[in-house]
Structures are given as C-alpha cells and as structure tokens.
C-alpha cells in the first residue's frame, strides 16, 4: 500500500512541481520583457514606455544602465 501511495504522491509532486516551475518561468520572462522594453527607450522615458507597450527600436540603449546579456 505504501508503494502505491508513494507512486501517486510522486506523480502529483512532479506534475505540480513542473507547473510551479513553468509559472516561475513565465514571471521571469515577463519581467525580462518589461526591462528590455524599458531599456530600448531613450532617456527620459515616458511613463507609457516604461509599462506594457513595446517602444520602437532605438539606435542606442540609454547610457545609465548598460544592459547585461544573459547567459
């Protein structure tokens, strides 16, 4: 019996663990999108560009925060 319980427990642990991990991934991706979009805006930033809408690509990232490449 304990083996059956263990098997079902592992099943749910792994699946929900994976879901939690995916959710964390979504959050970090969202943050990254936001900061990248903000980086691409020239200084001083407008309020709306800091938020959700994606600004047009600019020739230079603003000078105060040199972005760090992931990986």
């Amino acid at each position: 019996m304990s083996f059956v319980l263990a098997a079902y427990a592992v099943l749910w642990l792994v699946i929900f663990g994976y879901l939690v991990w995916l959710a964390a991934r979504v959050r970090s991706l969202r943050e990254e999108t936001r900061s990248l979009a903000a980086d691409a805006t020239p200084w001083p930033r407008s309020a709306e560009a800091d938020g959700l809408s994606l600004p047009l690509p600019q020739e230079q990232a603003h000078p105060l925060e040199p972005p760090i490449r992931r990986r």
Partner: peptide
C-alpha cells in the same frame, strides 16, 4: 502541458527578439 510549455516558448522567442533589436545588436 505541451500547450502551456509552447506558450512559454513563444514568450522566450519574444524576449530573444528583444535582445536582438537593432539598437543593441552590438551588445547581444
């Protein structure tokens, strides 16, 4: 799960595209 993961893959590609915007080509 595959559908969820595929949504995230779309977001990953978008972020990747943001890194390669013309303005930061040299940095990326």
């Amino acid at each position: 799960l595959i559908a969820l993961r595929r949504r995230i893959a779309e977001a990953e590609d978008e972020v990747e595209a943001l890194w390669h915007l013309p303005g930061r080509g040299d940095l990326a």
